[in-house]
Design a protein around this nucleic acid. Structure first.
Length: 105
DNA sequence: TTAGTGACGTCCC
DNA sequence: AGGGACGCCACTA
């Protein structure tokens, strides 16, 4: 089981209507402080891995982080989240206080 | 085997 | 308050 598969497994646990931050996932994957790995794992995520809710992963500020090379991707992610009931602030941010996933112990 | 790369987080002005 | 710089590890060619 590679480190990335661990990360994917954790992201799969994010419930519908909630979001998680990269740092949060890194922490649960026993990779404290390695948020970049989480980001890279998602970058490497193949399109057919539809069981991984990648759109529920945002940065620590509650903003959408997406590859700048994929144009329009941010719009797609926002759309998917709004579909699940996650509302955005006027400045395109998510209220983490309200929507951040709090993993069960 | 070595080097390059990549969806972030945090500290310091 | 806002912006800039650095660090970190896994994976591919």
């Amino acid at each position: 089981m590679s480190a990335y598969e661990e990360i994917y497994a954790i992201i799969r646990q994010i419930p519908r209507g909630k979001v998680a931050t990269y740092g949060q996932i890194a922490m649960k994957a026993n990779r404290l402080g390695h948020a970049r790995l989480v980001g890279y794992a998602l970058h490497r995520l193949a399109p057919h891995q539809n069981d991984v809710p990648w759109h529920r992963v945002v940065n620590a500020k509650g903003e959408i982080s997406y590859s700048i090379f994929r144009q329009g991707g941010d719009y797609l992610q926002r759309n998917l989240l709004e579909d699940e009931g996650v509302l955005f602030s006027p400045d395109e941010k998510i209220n983490l206080k309200k929507y951040q996933w709090q993993p069960e112990p």
